[in-house]
């Protein structure tokens, strides 16, 4: 009997050893982000953290505070930590190249979430579909102007730097929508320092220069106040429509109130999630889409209510309890 007992013990131990060898170590991710102080990135970090947690991965978030040196130090630190994967939202696409190079030398796969890179090797690049989003917001504006009988009016643009790929895509999509409806563009100003003053001045210049300016499109979201103030200061409140790209927490209310006609809202939370899911698919041995494009939500007065749930989760990172439960 003892033989049977000893055999059973050894079998148990052996199986136990076998079973213990198959249990993988939890994956460790590092998220190199340019500046967590910016809501967009912090929402994205939350999405990464939420999905990592959901997948059982550990994730270390490194914010560079918008410093290239810090960003490189963060990258070096993550590499020294020998993380399994790196998600990077770089300070700029050029700095990303060095990060990718360092990671490649260390053999660590990298998923780029937004901003993009000027080169280097990476696993996947996840970005918003800026063109489609801009096209959608353009349609909303054009229709609104036509509805108001302002189809002869012109549209001024205060753009993010057009050197950026996302800036070019946004302009292109927006203008295509205007051409579709026969609305003429008036002029374009490119933001440099993304300050309030800059946005205000650009808005005032456009309004002053073009008497037939009936709308302004702001390609960013954070300095929308400068544009609104400029319209107000120009005495054109209610006479000039304002549409924005991206979103601020107060946008839903402003849209609902009509202060903003519409906004094209990226979904940073969803992007963070998709970055982690990409590693999941990678490590599972599944094929990974190299360039992933996520839709931008075109939210107008008419649709804001219906889209509010999506906006809160994917845009604002405000995950509801039901979501958590579902996950």
């Amino acid at each position: 009997m003892m033989w049977w007992r000893s055999l059973a013990v050894w079998l148990f131990l052996g199986m136990g050893l076998l079973c213990g060898a198959e249990v993988p170590a939890p994956k460790r991710l590092a998220y190199l982000v340019s500046d967590l102080r910016i809501p967009f990135w912090s929402i994205m970090a939350r999405g990464i953290e939420a999905q990592s947690m959901h997948q059982g991965y550990s994730v270390q978030v490194y914010s560079a505070q918008n410093s290239s040196k810090q960003e490189l130090e963060n990258a070096a630190a993550a590499i020294r930590e020998k993380v399994d994967g790196i998600i990077v939202s770089p300070t700029n696409s050029s700095a990303c190249v060095t990060i990718l190079k360092m990671a490649q030398q260390a053999g660590i796969p990298v998923v780029i979430s937004d901003i993009g890179t000027d080169g280097g090797t990476y696993l996947s690049y996840i970005a918003s579909n800026n063109r489609d989003g801009a096209y959608a917001i353009g349609q909303i504006l054009a229709r609104s102007m036509i509805e108001r009988g302002w189809q002869e009016g012109r549209v001024g643009i205060i753009a993010i730097p057009q050197k950026r790929a996302n800036g070019q895509a946004r302009t292109a999509g927006f203008m295509e929508a205007l051409r579709l409806y026969g609305i003429k563009g008036a002029d374009i100003r490119q933001q440099v320092d993304f300050s309030y003053r800059e946005t205000y001045d650009f808005a005032r210049e456009l309004i002053a220069k073009h008497p037939d300016l009936w709308a302004l499109w702001l390609q960013g979201s954070d300095r929308y106040r400068g544009a609104l103030d400029a319209i107000a200061d120009a005495g054109k409140q209610g006479q000039i429509l304002l549409v924005c790209f991206d979103a601020e927490p107060e946008f839903t209310e402003l849209i609902e109130r009509g202060t903003l006609l519409a906004a094209a809202m990226q979904q940073p939370y969803l992007m963070g999630e998709e970055a982690v899911l990409t590693f999941v698919r990678h490590w599972r041995g599944e094929s990974v889409i190299k360039e992933q494009s996520l839709s931008v939500l075109a939210v107008s007065t008419d649709t804001v209510a219906a889209q509010m749930g999506t906006i809160r989760r994917n845009v604002l990172g405000l995950e509801s309890p039901s979501d958590k439960a579902a996950r």
């Binding site: 290239s68 040196k69 490189l72 050029s94 700095a95 990303c96 190249v97 060095t98 190079k101 000027d118 080169g119």
Partner: peptide, 10 residues
């Protein structure tokens, strides 16, 4: 000085 490695690589 700016740690623009990619820039000076270019």
């Amino acid at each position: 000085e700016a740690y623009a490695v990619n820039e000076y690589d270019l």
